[in-house]
């Protein structure tokens, strides 16, 4: 360090000093980093247990210096439910992609939210199956080309993309639901704030907290990382708007 300077931003210690396998510019890595920053800042490393999904983030446990479990595809919500019930004073999160949370695991997601399971969902919605090579997801946009929708998603045949944050916000058990993104420094800061708020609400035991990340997939979308930010802004946010869909603690404070 140069003399007369201080560190204002550095890699969190809770993020292991290991190169992440994600493609350049992937928000998975960004969210891993933000998550571990929060764990470090809140001083809850000893009390945090995470659940990884099947998907690109299947190896999330290789990077986060916390206890973690690897769940079967789609079942992270059931696994996280049980961890939180057995260890109610721990901070538990499930980290899931769109195939995991919104296709094969929809039942587990909805029922965990409806029971008000007091863990935090971190839902990475990039509109595509990244790990398996770019197939259609339940959140693939209308007309979006993937390897299994080569002519674009036909919503007459396949239905509209699922808006999970909006859906779960209708359930009584959910205390907080927000959709965030990481396309700009301001949005990334907001994303971190949302994740932190979710953990704080979890700590108070107020209900399920659900953070959806409108994420990117430069490799799956066949564009550069910088171009993926344009796709997000022009295509994704108009259908998947960023914002808070439910904030029970805020409502209570107003009352």
């Amino acid at each position: 360090m140069k003399e007369g300077y201080e560190v204002v931003y550095k890699r969190p210690k809770t993020l292991l000093d290991k190169r992440m396998h994600y493609c350049p510019g992937c928000f998975h890595a960004t969210i891993h980093k933000l998550l571990m920053e929060i764990v470090e800042e809140m001083g809850i490393q000893e009390k945090t247990v995470g659940v990884c999904p099947v998907g690109c983030s299947v190896f999330a446990y290789d990077y986060m210096d916390i206890d973690m479990q690897e769940a079967a595809h789609g079942r992270a919500a059931a696994v996280a439910t049980a961890i939180k019930r057995m260890l109610p004073d721990r901070y538990v999160f499930s980290y899931q992609g769109d195939g995991d949370l919104a296709a094969i695991g929809t039942a587990e997601t909805i029922h965990a939210c409806n029971r008000g399971e007091k863990f935090t969902f971190i839902f990475i919605n990039n509109g595509i199956y990244g790990m398996t090579g770019g197939q259609m997801a339940p959140t693939t946009l209308e007309g979006q080309k993937t390897t299994t929708s080569p002519y674009g998603r036909n919503v007459q045949k396949l239905g509209m993309p699922l808006k999970m944050a909006e859906m779960v916000s209708q359930l009584a058990g959910v205390a907080y639901a927000e959709r965030v993104s990481c396309n700009t420094p301001a949005n990334t800061r907001k994303a971190k704030k949302a994740l932190k708020k979710a953990f704080e609400i979890q700590g108070k035991g107020l209900g399920t907290t659900f953070i959806e990340v409108a994420s990117n997939c430069p490799s799956g979308w066949k564009c550069t990382p910088v171009e993926s930010l344009d796709w997000l802004k022009n295509k994704v946010y108009p259908y998947f708007p960023l914002g808070v869909f439910k904030d029970v603690p805020a409502v209570k404070e107003e009352v």
Partner: peptide
């Protein structure tokens, strides 16, 4: 899968 999570905890 709840059994999995709880047993692993």
């Amino acid at each position: 899968n709840m059994v999995y999570g709880a047993a692993a905890a």
